[in-house]
Design a protein around this nucleic acid. Structure first.
Length: 376
RNA sequence: GGGGGGAUACCAGAGCGGUCAAAUGGGGCAGACUGUAAAUCUGUUGGCGCAGCCUUCGGAGGUUCGAAUCCUCCUCUCCCCA
């Protein structure tokens, strides 16, 4: 994998670059649509590729491990062959999913013992296991096995957890280095900075992560309920320490505003379920602001979803029609909303990149943040 | 013609003397959702000067301290037999 920064914004830490993988080149900064179980919900890979023009998708180790099983995906020849997506893929290690299980899991220093949310069966994940499974799945970028701390989280626990995440990282790297991708192309391992909302821990973690010399670095444990200002503060702190010449990935973020603010801080990669999940629940992100398409006010608004939108659904469908589909619980409602929202997110990243290259990202960002987050 | 049910809030449908402004669904309206246990979940759905009051359970009377709940008549419905 290769990362080359071509442009830097004058008024912020934003940068534009190219990330090269064995499945293609990605223009940064970029957003990764989330396809938890190997598919972006309500979407064909052809639409993700041709219409939405996503450059990379994200998938999940935890989910694919439980179902259909990483051996099945490996037998298919890896996730790209299994789901038909030929561009780059990133898999999350499963740390976050297991954290989300709440009472159904238990962390130990060796790893995590958890129960499947599907059938309650018991499983154990260790750093080595997370590497093995991700080798089998065959994503271009794989993530270290970490513990995502909740918010709030007391400092003592955050410190203990951080120590564990760092210990696990060492084991991930060791195991990663003695294994190979069984599908004949290269994979990169990204470590994850933790430390909750404690500056001291974040700095310590960012230094430790930087010292690993990975091809890219991630910031985790944010956007878990803390105030946005705190998230930006931690992100800024960490970005100042992480290597400049390596891609930075802010995990799980976020709203259009969150993303633009973080791009300004020097983040290159994002993923979030908001455009897909909220889309399925009737929330549309548009260039003028946020729409709850289920609201009565749209019932006779026959204007297109997004007059200047680049995705076919933006032009073809009206707000009133999409509202009708949602109210009628038609499957197409989820497809249209997902297509629109992801199209919007990808467009937003492309615009951000353009503004960085032009050198006036920050002014544009200020204007967009206000505009994009207002409720229509 | 004879016999037997039933009429409850937008709809369906509980309640069968006080704890009922009235269960539960659906529908309506609104909100939430940030490395997806989510095509999910939550709130709300008679009125008002809203920790209280007012008007509601087909209509009109009546019994009772007190009725959606009991009695009488009326109206409308549904079912069975001729």
């Amino acid at each position: 994998m290769k990362f080359e920064i071509s442009h830097r914004d004058g008024g912020s830490s934003a940068r534009a670059g190219l990330l090269t993988t064995d499945h293609g080149i990605i223009e940064s900064p970029f957003f990764m649509p989330v396809g938890t179980a190997g598919a972006v919900k309500a979407l064909h890979v052809s639409d993700l590729n041709t219409e939405i023009k996503a450059q990379i998708m994200l998938s999940n180790t935890y989910h694919l491990y439980l179902r259909p099983g990483s051996d099945i995906v490996a037998k298919a020849g890896g996730l790209h062959k299994f789901n038909g997506w030929q561009k780059p893929i990133l898999t999350d290690s499963g740390g976050y999913q297991i954290y989300s299980l709440g009472a159904m899991r238990k962390f130990t220093d060796d790893g995590v013992v958890f129960q499947s949310h599907i059938d309650g069966s018991r499983h154990a994940f260790t750093p080595e296991k997370a590497m093995d499974v991700q080798r089998q799945l065959g994503a271009d970028i794989i993530m270290a096995f970490d513990e995502c701390t909740p918010y709030p989280c007391d400092e003592a626990y955050a410190r203990k957890s951080l120590k564990r995440t760092h210990y696990w990282l060492s084991r991930c790297i060791t195991h990663f280095n003695i294994t190979d991708c069984p599908h004949g192309y290269r994979q990169s391992l990204f470590p994850i900075v933790q430390g909750s909302v404690y500056p001291g821990l974040r700095v310590e973690s960012a230094k430790f992560i930087s010292d690993q010399g990975a091809e890219g670095n991630a910031i985790g444990g944010l956007s878990v309920g803390e105030p946005a200002s705190m998230m930006y503060e931690m992100t800024a702190l960490v970005c100042d320490i992480l290597p400049t010449d390596k891609p930075r990935y802010l995990m799980g973020v976020g709203t259009p505003a969150n993303i633009l603010e973080s791009v300004a801080l020097g983040v290159d990669m994002f993923d979030c379920v908001i455009p897909t999940r909220n889309g399925r629940n009737g929330m549309l992100f548009t260039r003028n602001g946020i729409i709850n398409i289920k609201n009565e006010k749209w019932k006779d608004d026959f204007s297109p979803l997004e007059a200047d939108g680049e995705v076919f659904a933006d032009q073809i469908y009206s707000k009133a029609f999409l509202r009708h589909l949602f109210i009628s619980k038609e499957i197409l409602s989820a497809m249209i909303a997902t297509t629109h929202n992801l199209g919007f997110y990808i467009w937003l990243m492309k615009e951000a990149r353009k503004k960085i290259i032009e050198g006036h990202f920050i002014e544009w960002k200020e204007r967009m943040v206000k505009q994009l987050m207002q409720r229509l």
